[in-house]
């Protein structure tokens, strides 16, 4: 698992590659949380390079989403593959987190 971040037009974009499972979810949490600074008001996590995520990874996404919501920052996910989108849907996360087909759509929606 690897996370690459960049900032474009005031949006922090985190590209996640590889696999997130119970064995590395803690690392995923640490890397993602420390990539987001307190000044970031818009955060997009791009799952285009993610090949696998289990509920341990969903837990991290929910924690991040809650913490951003608490300080009124915007948060979105994008580029989920078919089976990963299915996991988010079955878990009911599509109702509480904005999910877009592409990074461009996510950034446009967050006002970038």
């Amino acid at each position: 698992m690897e996370i690459k971040t960049q900032r474009e037009n005031g949006i922090l974009i985190a590209n996640v590659n590889g696999r997130v499972d119970s064995a590395n979810a803690r690392e995923f949490e640490n890397v993602l949380s420390s990539a987001i600074s307190d000044d970031d008001t818009c955060v997009v996590v791009d799952f285009g390079g993610l090949s696998y995520i289990s509920s341990s990874g969903l837990r991290v996404i929910l924690l991040v989403a809650k913490s951003l919501r608490n300080r009124n920052a915007e948060f979105a996910l994008c580029s989920l593959s078919g089976p990963i989108g299915e996991v988010f849907k079955i878990s009911g996360f599509d109702k509480i987190i904005s999910i877009y087909d592409s990074q461009a759509e996510a950034c446009a929606a967050l006002g970038g």
């Binding site: 509920s55 929910l62 809650k66 919501r69 079955i90 878990s91 509480i96 987190i97």
Partner: peptide
């Protein structure tokens, strides 16, 4: 999102 519990999804 504020009230959603963390965890409990695996069996579901």
């Amino acid at each position: 999102i504020e009230d959603r519990p963390i965890g409990g999804l695996g069996i579901h």
